[in-house]
């Protein structure tokens, strides 16, 4: 990551934050919705895209963050409640990641699916903490002794946190830990042979990823003032995975692009759909478009929008490739497997 990249990102963040601060409620809402999803998508990309650990429990982790932040915030912890959300998310993530020390690929993915279902079940029945199916009402976030009430302020806070999260994760990718993740993704056996402590490195990835998932959940709770179990079911995990696939696996910038796409698409369809006769029909069409879109993306642009952008850019600027910066780690091509043994290899 060059200083230039950081400066561009910072300028972008300031610009969007300013727009968010001046815009009307709807635009402010869009900005924080995208920013919050982006934090979650980046955290998920760290696990799936960088480390190769396929997880479907992201929704549950975001839920853990949301309920933690909600409870802590209601108890008057102020900004610390966001930190608490991150820490609880990290803890839950490490717990869900434990089987990854023994299982790989598909089997680990299924164990996270199990974790997702168990967590969303717990959200429903742990009345004292979550207020069950009726959901937990969350008081506004108290920052510097003052409750944050307006959507515009939340837009600014979310953008700032998104920038900081991106900075942290892209720096992390430049350390030995970050590089070790990529080796583990390709082959755990080789990683071990290179002297990498595979279990410890995986655990670090789970902790960091969980922290940002929790942070994402905390922000979600404060901005929507509400945390209910239905929001953190498998559907959220699928949304988040869709973001990183649409944006680009193994790319932080891709996570943000994917989050923009996946968050704004339903909004757009909603606008169009207001012409339709019934609300059910609108939501049905929204879901259908989402399903088709995931499939089409995977078929037509499996390396995500980031690679599309890279190709366009390299076409414009001649053949000069731009593959050195941290955020645009070049991606796998289609002919390669995901380092999951015995699964793709069976095919001819």
């Amino acid at each position: 990551m060059t200083t230039r990249t950081v400066l561009i990102a910072a300028a972008l963040a300031v610009a969007v934050a300013l727009v968010g601060y001046e815009a009307n409620r709807f635009w402010a809402y869009l900005i924080y919705a995208v920013a919050i999803s982006s934090i979650g998508a980046m955290s998920l990309n760290l696990l799936i895209g960088f480390c190769g650990q396929i997880t479907f429990a992201q929704g549950a982790l975001i839920g853990v963050g949301a309920y933690t932040a909600g409870n802590l915030g209601n108890a008057g912890w102020g900004a610390l409640s966001l930190l608490g959300a991150g820490l609880c998310g990290a803890l839950a993530s490490a717990l869900i990641g434990l089987p990854a020390l023994r299982l790989r690929g598909l089997y680990f993915a299924i164990s996270t699916l199990a974790a997702q279902f168990i967590f969303s079940y717990l959200f429903k029945i742990l009345q004292p903490l979550t207020n069950g199916v009726s959901g937990l009402v969350v008081k506004p976030l108290v920052l510097f002794g003052r409750p944050v009430a307006s959507d515009q302020e939340y837009a600014v806070i979310s953008i700032v946190l998104l920038f900081l999260s991106w900075l942290f994760l892209s720096r992390l990718a430049q350390t030995d830990v970050g590089r070790a993740l990529l080796v583990i993704r390709e082959s755990e056996l080789v990683a071990r042979g290179m002297g990498i402590d595979v279990s410890r490195t995986k655990m670090k990835a789970f902790l960091v990823s969980g922290f940002f998932a929790g942070l994402c959940g905390g922000l979600l709770a404060f901005t929507s003032r509400f945390a209910n179990p239905e929001a953190f079911e498998i559907g959220l995990s699928v949304d988040q995975t869709a973001m990183i696939i649409v944006g680009g696996l193994g790319s932080l910038a891709g996570s943000v692009i994917g989050a923009v796409f996946v968050t704004l698409l339903p909004e757009a369809i909603q606008r169009l759909g207001e012409l339709m006769p019934s609300a059910d029909l609108v939501s049905a069409f929204r879901e259908m478009a989402f399903g088709v879109l995931i499939i089409l993306f995977l078929l037509l642009e499996p390396r995500g929008l980031v690679s599309l952008g890279q190709r366009l850019r390299s076409r414009w600027s001649g053949s000069k490739s731009n593959a050195g910066t941290a955020v645009t780690i070049p991606l796998r091509d289609r002919s390669r497997t995901f380092a999951m043994p015995a699964f793709n290899r069976r095919k001819v």
Binding site: D176, R179, A180, L182, V183, E186, S187, V190, M194, G195, I196, G250, G324, I329, P330, L331, R332, R336
Partner: peptide, 19 residues
């Protein structure tokens, strides 16, 4: 040779040095 496609030469060598 393992397909560490996304890493640069220096990245891989640094990983070696990390040991």
């Amino acid at each position: 040779v393992v397909s560490l496609h996304d890493l640069t030469v220096l990245d891989v060598v640094k990983l070696g040095a990390a040991a």
